[in-house]
């Protein structure tokens, strides 16, 4: 191979890759703000459905399960706190499962909702289904345990997807509830902190944005 050939090949490759890169950069620049806004809207809507009785959802603070950024919120009806919502991550079979958990004032689980995951289609992705998520209503720390087979008071694993079921139950949900209990069961003293929370909340909104894009990138990385 002569130097001339090598130069030709290099130029050929560079031209195509630069063109491809520019095209992708252009599309990314156009689509990512739209995607970001829509993802945020979806998250807000998801928070609302977690506590339909509440008329206000207030951002209380943030925590970092699996080094990912997640928030927790107080659900208020009028001025009274009727429960809390926490965002959590569970380490699943092939992804981190991003989910929301709502609890009442006694930290009994009301509802869970899986926001984002990349579990095996057809097996792990059953965690999105109602029949699995409905099991969580009324569970406490002690009963958030996965059982293979029928169970009256615990969580029944999805057949063929025990790891994903465990990740949701014993990692995502349980750790979320645990964290809420640790942070919030301080009682009255913490109320004042709650006051801070409102102010912090506004600042946190920005941070939240960064956190989410980071999370996205991480997940893309894990795919390849």
């Amino acid at each position: 191979m002569t130097t001339k050939d090598m130069a030709k090949i290099t130029i050929n490759l560079v031209v195509i890759y630069v063109l491809g890169g520019l095209l992708l950069a252009f599309v990314y620049a156009k689509t990512s703000p739209i995607m970001f806004v829509k993802a945020k809207e979806e998250k807000e809507a998801a928070l609302k459905t977690m506590m339909p009785e509440a008329d206000k959802i207030e951002h209380l603070g943030d925590w970092e399960p699996h080094h990912k950024h997640a928030g927790y919120y107080a659900a208020k009806k009028g001025d009274e706190e009727i429960g809390y919502i926490v965002e959590g991550f569970g380490k699943g079979y092939s992804s981190y499962i991003n989910l929301l958990v709502s609890v009442d004032k006694n930290f009994t689980v009301q509802k869970i909702n899986v926001l984002h995951h990349a579990e095996t289609p057809g097996l792990g992705d059953e965690i999105e289904k109602d029949y699995f998520q409905k099991q969580f209503a009324g569970k406490t720390l002690d009963t958030l345990v996965v059982i293979k087979g029928d169970t009256p008071d615990k969580i029944q694993a999805i057949s063929g997807a025990t790891i994903s079921s465990r990740a949701v139950t014993e990692d995502g949900v349980k750790n979320g509830v645990k964290m809420l209990m640790e942070k919030l069961s301080g009682g009255q003293e913490k109320k004042e902190e709650g006051g801070h929370g409102v102010k912090e909340g506004e600042i946190e909104e920005h941070k939240e944005g960064h956190g989410e894009t980071e999370g996205k990138e991480n997940e893309h990385g894990s795919h390849s």
Partner: peptide, 16 residues
């Protein structure tokens, strides 16, 4: 490049 480009293109446009 062509294949990965198209796949990313579709991925991003659909996400938005």
């Amino acid at each position: 490049m062509v294949i990965a480009g198209y796949v990313s293109l579709i991925d991003m446009s659909m996400a938005a």
